[in-house]
Amino acid sequence: MEALLSPFAYAFFIKGLGVATLAGGLCGLIGVYITLRGMSYIGHGLSHAIFGGFAASSIININYYLGAGVWGLASALAINKVTRSWRIGADAAIGVITTSSFALGVALLSHYGDKGPAFDAALFGSLIGVSAADVWALASITTFTVAVIFLNYRALLFATFDPEVADVSGVRVARTDALLMLVLSLAILATLTVIGVTLVAATLVIPAVVARMLTHRFSRMLWLSTVIGAGCGFVGMNLSYHLDVPSGTMIVLTGALTFTVVLSLTGGRGLARTVRVDSHTNAAPVVVSTS
């Protein structure tokens, strides 16, 4: 017990534990919408795209949130442009643009920067370098996200379940989708250095899938996924300290273990609930006049 509590003597660990728990909960909360909309790949792609901005901002020494945020936004716009203008599928556009951005980030850091601890932290997550500004940024983004979801609960749920009928029923679907993309981008920005580029997508998906195995009520899935995400962050951070393994890695492995345990407890029933969980409605997208 003494060994388990020993890291709590260090201020950096307590700060890191709070950040990991908050980041896990934030990703778990947003992950419900991302998973149910079949947008997991966008989460994965955006984190890779933002890595390019992380590299560029660290080399030219500008604020990470500004540099990576602008880079991520530019990538999202480029994906949208390529998908619409060149009639390339969104998944292919994400694959091309975001991995190119990631590769550019690696090249920039290799050539001009210091491919040292910061590089590893961005890839796999670390809490060593978490500053007070990072904590405030994460807390602010979490508060903003909770407020967005609280105030747009019906719109987000309806637009996720059936965008076409939601549109007819007075939901401003395009605005709702844009709001969700904004929240997702901000969440990835805030959690990137804690969880890591390569692992952010897992923290979005695993808690939501585990929560889906446990309930068929949307409202319950929402808070269950948040709690599971936060729990994985808390436990993963502790394991990270004791096993001396990057924090993001242990947070994701804790999630994977939770998934396995819940799967074995719920059996076929839990697995059946996750079948086509990411299958968005087959309704055709809302069509805009071309005249």
């Binding site: 149910l36 749920l157 996720t160 379940f161 059936d162 076409e164 009928v165 007819v168 029923s169 889906r212 309930t215 068929h216 009520r217 949307f218 899935m221 609930r273 996750t274 079948v275 086509r276 969980v277 299958s279 968005h280 409605t281 087959n282 309704a283």
Partner: peptide
């Protein structure tokens, strides 16, 4: 009000 085709709906979506 609009009622869509049943086949276009994701029936595994977690709602009661």
């Amino acid at each position: 009000a609009y009622v869509p085709q049943l086949e276009t709906v994701n029936w595994n979506f977690p709602v009661t």
